[in-house]
Design a protein around this nucleic acid. Structure first.
Lengths: 333, 333
DNA sequence: GTGAAAGCGCTAACAT
DNA sequence: ATGTTAGCGCTTTCAC
């Protein structure tokens, strides 16, 4: 920058102001400095800027989601939102290891990140590290927030309701729900919304009630056995807690000669493309809009960094029903 | 740090040396300074350190792998290798967008990263950005390297050979190969290794030859039709170019009443846990050791940053056959 | 053995 | 409208 200033015949201070569009000065001077800077291929040293501006334009992203199934879209949303603002993100994979997590947090603090985003593979679990009292803003995205902090999560009840209402609108009347382990909070939330939606339509669930199991294809497969090999009238629709479960259900149905969606409509959850799109037929499913969630989280963190007051609390972001072919015709309108 | 120095009754210079285990000084002094630093909860300002040391202890990771299927393990390996050395990694998702890529590269350069790692979802494609002449070390990991640069890729021939030899060792004699589109270099590499391995054992492929198609379950399904619904004797083993293809083949086989592995042995490629483990039976597959690849890439970048001379060229890292249940008993020994 | 002083490259009051 | 000066927080050479 000294060189630029010299070449433009001004002082370093003036050069700095010119390049940052700050302070008063002749437009001619400003233009001239910017010209020479470009001509010389000048690239400001971000470290020096950060040091004196007391702002590093970096944030740390902590996550424990090894497969990246949930974190990846969140990440990409965060990154999108931040890169436009000149902010870069440090990726910290902490693998559920408290020591590793602490190492990463310490590194972030030394590198003087402007803020931290905590993400994870479960919305109802904390990362194995204490992020309170760090002296910098922290945002929780798809992860259990600390009390009095700011968090973004998906609206699982809303998503489940949309799914069930979609089935009802299509004329399905015996709708079952096959979902994951009851140790997950979302299992309860989605099941509650499922029951509410049925109740509101004056319908009852199948005799077996909500089938609670695992987040796996195998469980979907097994559950389909309970639903369709028993006595009594089988469901005409199954709302599943994950795409993997739905895939298991669909495969089991095909093995039993039941047609999807003609005989049975199936809806999944997650919109994990690779599973949902490979299922035959492709799955209608609930998309949690994770990328948008990441974007919101990123933008909010920036506001916090700018010392704008933000109401603490957790924000539930809406899910979206993605209609493919496992339910038959989309609703009119 | 001024505070630490004052509290320990030494100058800032001495404090700095004490904390960095540098220079000569009384052990007592050094210890005392370190004590007080800890007592005061002193955390060095990385920005200032970087500024004067001319080393930021950060690296940039460029990738265009949206699903993260390949990049995630690579990332996690890189991150593992680097965090131990106090180096943090900036994640740059460039989405195959040249402008976005350039934006990220510029950001990295301004932030004075010590080096850049370019990764991707295809080993035979360049990222849409020129990384030569940046003035900092660049390493290619699971991505097409520039001429005269350093790259790490998986040894696809080796992996394919292991797979086919495994099948031969298990007594299979009519081994088919179902793989992805011929626009991928790995398709040719794996097919070549497949033919070589067959030839070396004095075997021939099936009448249909190598079945080239897509990286999808649907293609695996379809290809199984060609292999098993035709006239002539069907294969007793299928080596697939991806786990997704293998999954399609296995499902198709089950629908035809052929037992895996009893009637037909199947091997996949990628060890994409989520599909390999969900297949019935779980897939034996070729693991590309992507995490180790990432680790190597990270470590090598550090050597480059330390100005250690490294031979340019691409290193092929070995794959590993992961035996599950789709081939029957593992080979003796 | 320890410390004074001169940077690292940039920003921001304050003066002119 | 521009320049001078004093940092930002740390490292490092070189006297003492």
């Amino acid at each position: 920058m000294r060189d630029v200033a010299a070449a433009a015949g001004v002082s370093v201070a003036t050069a700095s102001k010119a390049l940052n569009d700050q302070g008063r000065m002749a437009e001619e001077t400003r233009a001239r400095v910017q010209q020479t800077a470009k001509a010389l291929g000048f690239r400001p040293n971000g470290l020096a800027q950060s040091l004196s501006r007391r702002r590093s334009f970096t944030v740390g992203l902590l996550t424990n989601d090894t497969y990246g199934r949930f974190t990846l879209p969140v990440m990409s949303g965060i990154s999108d939102a931040l890169v436009d603002n000149g902010v870069s993100v440090f990726l910290c994979n902490i693998e559920d290891d408290p020591a590793l997590a602490q190492t990463h947090v310490d590194a972030m603090l030394e590198k003087r990140v402007d803020g931290i985003i905590a993400s994870g593979k479960r919305i109802d679990r904390r990362l194995p590290v204490d992020l309170s009292g760090l002296g910098i803003p922290v945002i929780y995205a798809f992860s259990e927030p600390d009390p009095d902090s700011i968090g973004f999560v998906s609206d699982d009840e809303g998503g489940a309701r949309q799914a069930v209402e979609h089935l009802i609108r299509l004329g399905r009347r015996r709708i079952a729900h096959v979902t994951g382990p009851s140790s997950f909070r979302v299992v309860h939330q989605r099941a509650a919304a499922y029951r509410d939606a049925l109740g509101a339509a004056g319908l009852a669930g199948p005799d077996q009630g909500v089938l609670v199991g695992h987040w796996s294809e195998a469980w979907g497969h097994e559950a389909a056995g309970y639903l369709f090999d028993g006595i009594g009238s089988p469901p005409d629709a199954v709302f599943c807690g994950s795409d993997q479960i739905a895939r298991g259900v669909v495969d089991a149905l095909r093995e039993r000669g039941r047609r999807v969606p003609d005989d049975v409509a199936v809806i999944g959850f997650d919109n994990w493309e690779i599973v949902a799109a490979a299922t035959r037929p492709p799955l209608t499913t609930v998309d949690m809009n994770l990328k948008a969630l990441g974007r919101e989280a990123g933008l909010t963190l920036l506001q916090l960094v700018d010392r704008q007051p933000i109401e603490p609390g957790v924000r539930k972001l809406p899910c979206r029903l993605l209609v493919r072919q496992s339910c038959g015709a989309p609703p009119a309108g």
